[in-house]
Write a protein that binds this DNA or RNA. Sequence first.
RNA 1: GGUGGCGUAGCCAAGUGGUAAGGCACGAGUCUGCAAAACUCCUAUUCGUCGGUUCGAUUCCGACCGCCACCUCCA
Length: 485
Amino acid sequence: MGLKIYNSLSRQLEEFSPLKEGHVSMYSCGPTVYDYIHIGNARTALVTDIIRRYLTYKGYTVKLVQNLTDIDDKIIARAQTLGTSSSQLAHTNGEAYFEDTQRLGIQLADVHPKATEHIPEMIDLIQTLIDKGAAYVVDGSVYYRVNSFNEYGKLSRRKPEDLLAGARVEVDERKEDPRDFDMWKAAKPGEPYWDSPWGPGRPGWHIECSSMAMKHLGETIDIHAGGEDLLFPHHENEIAQSELATGKPFARYWVHVAFLKIDGTRMGKSEQNFIFLRDALDKYPAEVIRHFLISAHYRHPLDYSLESLQKSESALRRLKNCLETLKKYEEETPEVTDGNSSTPRDVSDADTDLLSAIKTMQSQFTDAMDNDFNTAQGMGTIFSLVSQINKALGTSNGVSDQTFTQAYKVLSETCQVLGIYTMDEQDTAGTAEFLNPLLELLLEIRQDARSQKDWDTSDKIRDRLKQLNIEIQDTHEGSTWKFVS
RNA sequence: GGUGGCGUAGCCAAGUGGUAAGGCACGAGUCUGCAAAACUCCUAUUCGUCGGUUCGAUUCCGACCGCCACCUCCA
């Protein structure tokens, strides 16, 4: 079964086949950098990241472009209140965006174009549209003539009369039609501007994405992603501009990510109910936040709460325990490298069972992800395998080290598609190495005390270490320690 | 008013025209000197309500109730 993607344009699940075999071009609408991003913004960025990781896992070569809108009304307004320049503010927040998303484990896109660095391309595109009679100039601003594109509304399924009936459409006497939107905004006094054939001004939001997407990915791109709020008018307008200019389909698959909610309503900057991603990252590990954000299908709303994050933390602990146990197995197993790996060895029933469970997980995980990137379901398959591995680990019923090694390999690779298991050593690793001999000594002393039933000493060591965030774990194979928070 | 979506156990959340994945919590157990940690097991005759189609519906259709979003800058 191949990959299916829900295409907002057709409102259907479609078989995915890229324009150029083996290659996928993907554009994701990035942030307007007038502030830090919140967790809701992060959801879209994360979904994009996972789609890209999965396509790569499937063997595609993916080119991902994600823009930065670094000039717009909000940036100008915010810069004024902060007493800084728009470009400085955009630069600072742009850097913060990269910092935050990378902390979340989101890989950098192949290109992160900035609007202000593509003004000539935008001017060209606007000129093309004017030449085609699809735009008109009024007082130094350029408007797109919606009436000139008869497919307008095909993405959002909005009819002209519906739009007009809304009564919330901005009234601007200078427009021929209330639906027309600006591609070039004439600069008001004091605003930053770029020169253009129509006078000083700045690009409109929609033209930015049209022109940057086409510049970096060509006239037709495979996947265009963004938050569901962008469907109208942003994406509708991108289509109108791009398709009228080129006469070709702009994007073949439109992917829209549902909102992150908080207390049942949308998390949004205007609602003032958001939580900055960086603040969340200060409290929870990146994998926990990732786990939470992908615990529901991307087209379904997800409600943010501390409780949900705690659930993710617990779930992830279960996964990590399993992975770490398997990893130890691998380290303790000398690699058999006789150059001929087909050496026959005894394969027990238990091996066969676990090996088949691993295969089942792989195919079910792929099925889940092939079904419009169903991360929630994919996660389910991962945890089912964890359960089976734990059983095998617990019973020591003759599962070979090689099988556990295989389990570790497959499980960790699968988790990495979702980005919920990083093999990077924790920053505590160095400290742990230093402390280990000391702790070994303490554990030894404690063990002596326990042998003599000196519970006071034994418990004192345990309790005092606990106060230092070091937890002693007594197992049947002796005592171990680890950091807890 | 127009458009789209959602309602599944205590909570979160997949899913299918043929009888409900997974996670968290709870409870029980294994281990332990006691704990903790870890692991195992257990938990929905039922999928908002009412009708209809069907041999059979949670899944399809209709109505209703409740919730959310977009139509204005927002991922």
